[in-house]
Design a binder for these strands. Structure first.
Length: 793
RNA sequence: GGGCGCAUAGCUCAGUUGGUUAGAGCACCGCCCUUACAAGGCGGGUGUCGGGGGUUCGAGUCCCUCUGCGCCCACCA
């Protein structure tokens, strides 16, 4: 991103380059819990005297000191403040040319205002709505999570074959289940409508084992005849298919797992037989795993489980940061429409994705895949503490119960607000929680609900309309491929709703940095490499060189070898510059006249074109590679060839041509390298310019002699290489003299060599240089009679 | 199960719309203290371009197919 920003700045653009720390949300809460040993209990009162007991290294047994929400939030602010200073130091050291005056944080005041305002707009237009529905819920964090935050993990499980009793006593109905602990939540049985094995049973009922509840046998096309016994028990709720069946078959809700992740302690009313009630007492209050063991034990005793559990591994949904499987709990949550339940919106958002210019283009497939696969709207409410509050209150009825349909919204001018400490218009604090009064929404918004507005936050949507008009929609969103479904998609959703357009024209999608074995870095694997040591060992330019050599979108393995090359390149730039500048400035008006000088500059002009084109297409890696290849050729062949002439061996005019060409080339090359190696290029630039190279204009073909004949260069390089090879093979120094060089070559090559004959002769130490025509280029090198080895020193 | 990407020298990777004999760096070996650079320079070889088939005058490049690896997604009975 920085390379692109520096390039565009050199082209004369005003680059709007903000940065933000995404510090709100669960990641911060967890870090605070781990570092300070506290946990938030919103029922506690604020304690102004509270001091965190630890600062890092909290003993495990002390990790749950309960503190009030205001105390907790204050601790979060302290911790992120320290972390963000470290981040800033690192980013500055990387030479990222961010405009630090544009720094924002997602928990900051402007972000909160932006996030709440956008939400209220969504609410007013009907794009935000609340719903009481089964929701995927993390029982450890005690919060709902969105589809984008879930992942499947392969975990061990087991099929349990369980017998349900037919009401007509004609025998048992067998099912396979991995979750026998949900047996008490069973509301129906389901098989495929075309399955002849179960067709006779549709419309009848069976009795659940242990709990003795009568449940109907139903047909639904989602039931898979191939899975298990072909008939499944529907529980509220074991998985998302259960939710579908529950909704589409109009089944009752018999949820038993609560927000604490445990089975309800009281025996539910639908279990009516004494035997069933006794069975439930065994599992009341247990966590799912304990309950499963108990149920298996009971079923085994009663003979209703057939055989042993059969171990399998199967995919189970987890919160991406969680450790236990998600449960499905019925809760009231806020959603923003994202096309997951509305084909028109889904198609409109797919169209937005097509409008966006993706770099690399195939990354669009991930977007399409994600949008096409959405199975619900975007759940944005979180039962957490350190986040942007949902800016709403609800009226309370005469019994003090919230009326969720009677929403009280704040005036936009008062944003941001915290509904737990401020009150709605027309009310006073006295009315909080009282019958006929009001209550604030206790939840905060998902961090992506705020991050999806980063163009608005950075661009001053809420407080600087003039700036916003100039920068929105933006040119480019830089980000990695793993957050296309969250950051990128969320941003498009919000911009589509708010403005009816894309938030930016281009998406520059980067890959990941992998560990040296090409594995994703992760804390749990312990293979994380933090950049600070690399910066110390190799220098910033070298680390940037490595980073820029990874092509857009491609994952790049951490590679110290690549950084060594980057460091070598920087050193070479210093040395070559020292040499070129050592000749002093050529006289005013001196221009490159020698054919080889002009040819070199013509090649450089091509490199300028190619690099410019590549950077215009966000292909920084190609731009760097072409510049680098030119530069090494320039040092190895061109400089060696013209060195003598530049010193003046062929007279002043010839020297001035070489010196002017060397300077022009260096001047251009430094600017081509500036976006990649900002430190070394600026250092060298400062040796002969007043302003920074980063304020210089990006080079253009028109600055360089473009009439040079590039075809001169290859034959000349071939001859140089042949002479060097001969000396090396003879184990002689490159200074050794060549008594005779014969070059046979086709006319075109011959003419090229002829034009730099003197330079070649000087560079190679050639005494007699004979050219003659031949179909292909051949060289014969006769070395001078060997001298006494001792004397060669 | 669906989608996407990758597969080129021992390693990391270029190879832009098909076009001479497939390249670079690293690593390895040898030589050279050379006046910009010894934290350097010069030189050296190694390829069934994953397998098979096709289109074409011509394929690393385009098409089909298979294999392997990786990532993203998906409905947990």
């Amino acid at each position: 991103t920085d390379t692109i920003a520096r390039f565009q700045r050199m082209r004369g653009k005003m680059v709007f380059y903000p940065i933000g720390w995404d510090d709100n949300g669960l990641a911060t809460e967890r870090r605070v819990q781990n570092v300070t040993g506290v946990r938030c209990d919103p029922s506690l009162p604020f304690d102004p005297e509270f001091v965190a007991p630890y600062n890092g290294d909290v003993p495990k047994e002390h990790r749950a000191i309960p503190i009030s929400r205001p105390n907790f939030v204050s601790l979060c602010h302290d911790v992120i403040h320290d972390d963000e200073e470290v981040f800033e130091q690192l980013v500055r050291r990387l030479g990222i040319s961010i405009d630090w005056s544009l720094l924002y944080t997602t928990i900051g005041e402007r972000s909160q205002r932006t996030s709440q305002l956008a939400f209220l707009h969504n609410l007013a237009r009907g794009e935000a709505y609340q719903q009481d529905a089964p929701t995927l819920y993390d029982i450890d964090e005690r919060t709902a999570v969105a589809q984008a935050e879930m992942e499947d993990r392969e975990v061990p499980g087991a099929y349990h074959k369980i017998a349900f009793h037919r009401s007509d006593a004609s025998g048992d109905l067998l099912i396979d289940t991995t979750r026998p602990e949900l047996l008490a939540s069973c509301v129906a049985m389901v098989a495929h409508p075309d399955d002849p094995r179960y067709q006779p049973l549709f419309g009848t009922t069976v009795r659940t084992p242990l709990f003795e509840v009568e449940v109907p046998v139903l047909a639904h096309h989602l039931a898979d005849p191939e899975k298990g016994t072909g008939i499944a028990m529907i529980c509220t709720f074991g998985d998302t298919t259960d939710v579908t069946w529950w909704r589409e078959l109009n089944l009752p809700s018999r949820a038993l797992i609560g927000f604490d992740g445990r089975m309800a302690t009281e025996t539910p009313p639908w279990i009516t037989t004494p035997g069933g009630q006794t069975a439930y007492e065994h599992v009341a209050g247990l966590a799912p795993k304990q309950a499963q063991r108990k149920i298996v034990e009971l079923l085994t005793e009663s003979g209703e489980m057939l055989g042993e559990p059969r171990a399998i591994t199967h995919p189970v949904k987890f919160y991406e940061r969680g450790t236990r499987p998600l449960e499905i709990v019925a809760t009231r949550q806020w959603y923003i429409r994202n096309g997951g339940r509305d084909d028109d919106l889904r198609n409109a958002l797919l169209e937005r994705g097509k409008e966006l210019i993706w770099h690399p283009p195939y990354m669009f497939n991930r977007y399409q895949n994600w949008v096409g696969g959405l199975n619900g709207d975007w759940l944005i409410s979180r039962q957490r503490f350190f986040g942007v509050p949902i800016p709403l209150w609800y009226r309370l009825d005469s019994d003090g119960n919230p009326l969720h349909d009677e929403i009280l919204t704040p005036d936009e001018s008062k944003l941001p607000i915290d509904p737990s400490t401020s009150c709605p218009d027309g009310f006073t604090e006295d009315g909080r929680g009282k019958p006929g009064g009001f209550i604030g929404d206790p939840d905060v918004m998902d961090t992506w609900a705020t991050s999806s507005l980063t163009p608005h936050i950075a661009g001053g949507w809420v407080d600087d309309p003039e700036l916003f008009a100039r920068v929105f929609p933006m040119d480019m969103r830089p980000q990695a491929h793993d957050i296309i479904r969250t950051w990128l998609f969320g941003s498009i959703v919000r911009s589509h709703h708010e403005h009816g357009c894309l938030p930016w024209r281009h998406a520059a999608i980067s890959g990941w940095i992998l560990d040296p074995d090409r594995k994703k870095m992760s804390k749990s694997k312990g293979n994380v490499v933090t950049p600070i040591n690399l910066l110390e060992e190799f220098g910033t330019d070298a680390v940037r060189y490595w980073a820029a050599s990874g092509r857009p979108g491609v994952d790049t393995a951490f590679d110290a070898g690549q950084m060594k090359i980057g460091r070598k390149l920087g050193t070479k730039l210093l040395n070559a510059s020292k040499f070129v500048l050592g000749f002093g400035a050529p006289p005013t008006g001196a221009v490159p006249t020698a054919p080889i000088d002009r040819a070199m500059l013509a090649r450089l002009a091509d490199v300028v074109d190619e690099s410019t084109r590549a950077l215009d297409e966000f292909d920084y890696a190609r731009a760097l590679e072409r510049t680098e290849a030119f530069f090494w050729w320039f040092c190895d062949d061109y400089v060696e060839l013209v060195k003598g002439r530049a010193y003046g061996t062929q007279g002043d005019d010839a020297a001035h041509s070489a010196r002017a060409a060397l300077r022009q080339a260096l001047d251009t090359v430094l600017r081509l390298f500036a976006p990649f190696l900002p430190f070394v290029s600026d250092e060298v630039w400062s040796w002969w310019h007043d302003a920074s190279v980063h304020a210089a204009a990006w080079p253009a073909r028109s600055e360089l002699a473009t009439t040079g004949d590039i075809s001169l260069l290859a034959p000349v390089s071939d001859v140089i290489a042949a002479v060097r090879r001969a000396k090396t093979e003879a184990k002689l120094s490159q200074r050794a003299a060549v008594s005779e060089l014969v070059v046979n070559a086709p006319t075109v090559a011959l003419r090229a060599i002829e034009q730099c004959r003197t330079d070649l002769a000087e560079a190679g130490g050639i005494e007699t240089f004979t050219l003659s025509e031949a179909p292909t280029l051949e060289t014969f090198v006769r070395l001078a009679p060997s001298t006494d080895p001792a004397a060669s020193h």
